[in-house]
Design a protein around this nucleic acid. Structure first.
Lengths: 337, 337
DNA sequence: TTGTACGCGTTATCAC
DNA sequence: GTGATAACGCGTACAA
């Protein structure tokens, strides 16, 4: 049987309220009794019960992480889990635990979210934004559940969010291509409605404008941003009136697919077609030639998201909207003429 | 304020104990009152408090998942998160929540595991085995915390585990290479002490024996199984007295690195050097030529692990050791002569 | 500075 | 079938 606060009090020869105060660092406890209580806790290997504590304080000391978790996700979207790892680190540092929540289930069952709150299962949630983000944001707001969104959800709606500065990243990547001497640039996005792709495209357009250029051809978009789409997309690209001499691609998988397709048609990647893409998957340095990428620190993004949650918990009503810029251009052969 | 069992009882005009019985499907409750209580619950949008329930029943309805979660893990080891996704699905189906635990912290702090138990933070844990597995297994056993290990930890120690049948997978892959006509086969592992690699090698050796052959050259091992190690490893391979005509590689990243290294030296992958590897990362079909792989259903592995945990929870003392074989050979050009 | 007593929301054991 | 009531372990006024 595990020791309770009662046992500790008895062994230390004090009242349970005193033990409680020692645990919660209440100021007016003499050093002497404090030490006695600590010693008793140690002797009994005492750990306060989460449930009792949660019941009394009405919180769980647990943060929910809400993201899409389905078959194959880990292979196609490893970045989500890099964010998750960052969240876990911060939460553990703050003595909170992480409860994994799947958007798949919570979106199906309309009562699931209110249940989350009513049960006090989590004190707050971190939402990895996807198409269903607005739905969840509405629910959380209405239920007054503290939350922060990863990714710019619906800007200006007054909730906290953190995100990479994708526009700025697009700017940096494009400047790099221009500096290498490429001039007929085209942007390739993962999905027509993918906010991240669109933000990156904004930076792309801005960098071109700075250089007194305009996009040679309008941006093209895939459907899911996967490797396999590269071939079809490359067909679209070559059918355009004017072939671009460089592509800025919104994600590694798509870029790798495009690279393979172009290469198989005898295009010299680098000299004839510059290629830069976002993210830095292990295999980006493995393509032939290796891909130039914008390496984005998603672990840090997760940490920052957790940080925001704790700010909100400590200071109810707190809001902030943070753009993170922890990224580095890794120039490799695919953008060398 | 959220409704409590008290409010429900009042609205339904019954005692709280009756409400409790309705919730727990106690048999001797009349259909009539059962319906009245249900209706009251609906009207009040009632959800029982996790904490109160946990306190009374002394469990948390939460399963801990213990794995290594560090920076870059998601990119280099996506398979862990595929397992995690499978676990989440099964746990949610069983009305349990998933708490994420990081071996990094739990291994540092010796008290952390006993705390997990004392706090009743989780009812059981699923351990993704790595080097520290024996340490955790000892602790769990001693503390009588139900657990199942993913990966054969210490065989025969009497705890539950589930794993892919890596030996059999190695057998299948090797038979495929032999059927294609390759004869001078060599096995390449991720790490000299990596159990998974070693099991796969056993199958490899067995298949050769079946064919009346012996490995031409002893197996070689990388340090971490990463893409970047391919080049150095390829140097080792060519320096051997006799060059193999086919490689069975324990993991996709390493295989991709080897493929690139061999190709850059003008070796025709397929005709001159057969290549089969394990796992089926999205980019495996992207290498030139595409990699033949053994596709392993890790999502199912996670589901099965969770299944075992629930068996153990329902039937204390239950033990089982399961080998899963949900895998399919995807023959591609890298193993076509 | 320390101790007493009650509340938190549920389950389980009785008695009716 | 249903209801009263004692746990479960901790926080916290309030009293001393």
């Amino acid at each position: 049987m595990a020791a309770t606060i009662h046992d500790v009090a008895q062994l230390a020869g004090v009242a349970i309220s005193t033990v409680s105060k020692v645990m919660n660092d209440s100021p007016r406890i003499s050093e002497q009794t404090r030490a006695r209580v600590r010693e008793a806790m140690r002797q009994l290997d005492y750990h306060p019960s989460r449930h009792a504590r949660g019941l009394a304080r009405n919180r769980s000391d647990s943060i929910g992480v809400l993201m899409g978790l389905g078959r194959h996700h880990a292979f196609h979207n490893p970045y989500r889990f890099e964010i998750l790892s960052g969240i876990e680190q911060s939460c553990t540092q703050q003595q909170h635990s992480v409860t994994l929540l799947n958007t798949q289930w919570l979106a199906q069952d309309r009562k699931a979210v209110s249940q989350l709150v009513a049960e006090r299962k989590v004190d707050a949630v971190i939402l990895h934004a996807d198409e269903q983000a607005p739905f969840f944001i509405r629910q959380f707001t209405q239920l007054k559940l503290p939350f922060v969104v990863i990714g710019r959800g619906a800007p200006g709606e007054g909730h906290s969010w953190v995100d990479m500065d994708n526009r700025h990243a697009g700017l940096l990547a494009t400047r790099h291509l221009l500096a290498q001497g490429y001039r007929r640039l085209q942007f390739i996005g993962n999905h027509p409605a993918d906010g991240i792709s669109l933000q990156r495209e904004q930076g792309f357009t801005q960098a071109l404008a700075e250089a007194g250029l305009a996009p040679q051809t309008p941006a093209l978009f895939a459907q899911a941003g996967e490797v396999a789409e590269g071939a079809a997309l490359w067909q679209q690209i070559v059918q355009q009136p004017q072939r671009p001499d460089a592509l800025l691609v919104a994600g590694n998988p798509l870029a790798a697919g495009l690279l393979a397709a172009a290469r198989s048609q005898g295009i010299a990647i680098g000299p004839e077609l510059g290629l830069v893409s976002f993210d830095n998957y292990p295999y980006a340095q493995l393509t032939d030639p290796p891909l130039s990428v914008l390496d984005i620190d998603l672990f840090a993004l997760g940490q920052r998201a957790a940080h925001e949650v704790f700010l909100q918990l400590a200071n109810p009503g707190h809001r902030s909207q943070i753009m993170l810029l922890d990224m580095a251009l890794q120039a490799r052969a695919s953008s060398r003429r």
